[in-house]
Design a protein around this nucleic acid. Structure first.
Lengths: 294, 294
DNA sequence: CGTATGTTTCTTATGTATAAAAAACTGGGG
DNA sequence: CCCCAGTTTTTTATACATAAGAAACATACG
């Protein structure tokens, strides 16, 4: 049976929506809420019914009134708001990084499904999607093989990354002054400086900023294949560094400074500087990853 | 229920194996046959049992003897030797290219499953794998959208293709004389000349040769992400050109000559010539594809 | 009439079932 | 002992079932 994670997520969000409204106010229409929460009206109605049953709102003649602010209502815990297909990703990455890092390990769909507590269909679907990350390989009529989080993997990854990133960065040199991208670049610098100022407390926020930074650079000339490859990079860094915490703070601080240098170079529109800053960052990122694998 | 396409394929292949043996000869062991046919011993035994039931071979005390050459035995038709998951690819590409080429078309899993006569699971799995080709996109809790076989698609595809191909081709300039790749390059030239000599009759064989040629060039320095991208190129060319036959013969002849020029350039080890030949071919291939889309 | 809610229908997400295929186990002969 | 064929156990490929969610349709109210 399908899980009701969409409902639970919408329910949690609806609590926030209600909190922002005054007592006695009329709720927005189902259609407005639908757009706001990003779900179907069917789900909105289900959430409203559920909240109504708890007495937080009352329906009267085609309108809904807020009776009390939902302070007491408990939110659904985060795990219950993730579809099984999403949970499997986390389970799998943990299995991979913690338990069975060794290359050549055979992956057994049935066993994983049992271990993760989901149907085999889900595991299968996940593995199919996960294939693009280059870490597993399918063998006809047999299971999958884990190819290993190896130095080779990192080198192949960075070879592509370098091609793509240099290509995008270089395009900034000819980007017209009026492009809206420059605004985003400048906002990106601010975000980096902000994080740098508070690096001791917030160094763990870097992973997400890193991904946003590289996606912004790639966005200078959209290419679906490059965008898809960003997913590969993002997942690798997200999980690998989550698992390997050595020198995390220093590592991130260095990367932030390299990003800032690259931003300066981009804004200078000087091709040589761009090349240099970009390559410097990629080389350093590669070395860091390689060191953490060895 | 799972289809028995593996059995049928093995059965067809076994017929060839038996034909190559003398009457009265003893069959190789199950294990040897298993390796030869590339299936499990379970399937080999099933095939042997089936052929045995038709009286072509007799089992006596731990050995199997060929009694007659299987001229009469009918092979299973090709369609029955393809797993549903493989058939779906063809069905889908035909649906896409013939019926619904327009961008933005919504793809309905259930409807496709009905149309193709397979379970929804299979269609779903296919779409998940097919996502990497950049032609479809998934929307949360809703179906998929066909993004269209558009000029933009072709341009993005070729931007990546050019980066990858130039990278590989350039590496040939520093490839040591002793590398086994040179033998394959020379064999590749022979294959091209052979096809060229008989181009009027065999121009349809080019698609496969093309794919092998570009994979060989990439093989100079293996990179899983580049290899994976070759699949994208291969499928696009295979199906798109199968559907668009305009000027097929001329188009292929031109490409063969460009390939030959590139082979010469590679063997010259001259970087400038390699760059030039490689770029010339890619430009021409891109123009051809764009023209056929417009 | 247009917008909002109530109702019905269709589709997707995910579990379960099962034949086909693979792999593991077994006893026997050279 | 190694290899071989017979047997049993596991796993995969695929079909099918169903609740959740989306979309389409219908009705009512201002």
């Amino acid at each position: 049976m399908r899980t009701d994670t969409t409902f639970k997520r919408a329910f949690n969000e609806m609590i926030d929506v209600l909190r922002a409204l005054d007592l006695g106010a009329e709720l927005p229409s189902e259609n407005v809420l639908r757009a706001q929460l990003g779900v179907s009206r069917t789900t909105v109605r289900k959430v409203l019914a559920s909240i109504s049953a708890r007495g937080v709102i009352v329906s009267e003649a085609h309108r809904r009134i807020i009776r009390e602010h939902p302070q007491q209502i408990e939110r659904f815990p985060k795990e219950q708001t993730l579809a099984s297909s999403e949970q499997v990703e986390t389970s799998f990455m943990e299995w991979m990084l913690r338990d069975n890092a060794c290359p050549g390990t055979e992956i057994n769909e049935a066993e994983l499904a049992r271990k993760f507590g989901v149907a085999t269909t889900i595991v299968r679907e996940f593995l199919n999607r996960f294939q693009k990350y280059g870490l597993i390989e399918k063998r006809q009529n047999a299971g999958w093989v884990f190819k290993g989080f190896t130095a080779n993997f990192a080198l192949e990854l960075f070879e592509i990354r370098e091609m793509f990133e240099m290509r995008s960065a270089r395009l900034f040199a000819t980007l017209p002054d009026g492009s809206p991208i420059w605004k985003q670049v400048s906002a990106m610098r601010a975000a980096h400086l902000e994080l740098l100022a508070d690096i001791d407390a917030r160094f763990q926020d870097f992973s997400e900023l890193d991904s946003r930074f590289h996606r912004l650079i790639a966005a200078v000339a959209p290419n679906r294949f490059i965008e898809s490859f960003q997913d590969v990079i993002a997942i690798v860094f997200h999980y690998h560094y989550q698992w390997n915490k050595r020198d995390e703070r220093t590592r991130n601080e260095v990367a932030i400074r390299e990003h800032l240098a690259l931003i300066d170079a981009l804004e200078s529109r000087n091709l040589a500087s761009i090349d240099q800053a970009c390559r410097a960052h990629l080389t350093s990122a590669r070395e860091t990853l390689l060191r953490s694998i060895a």
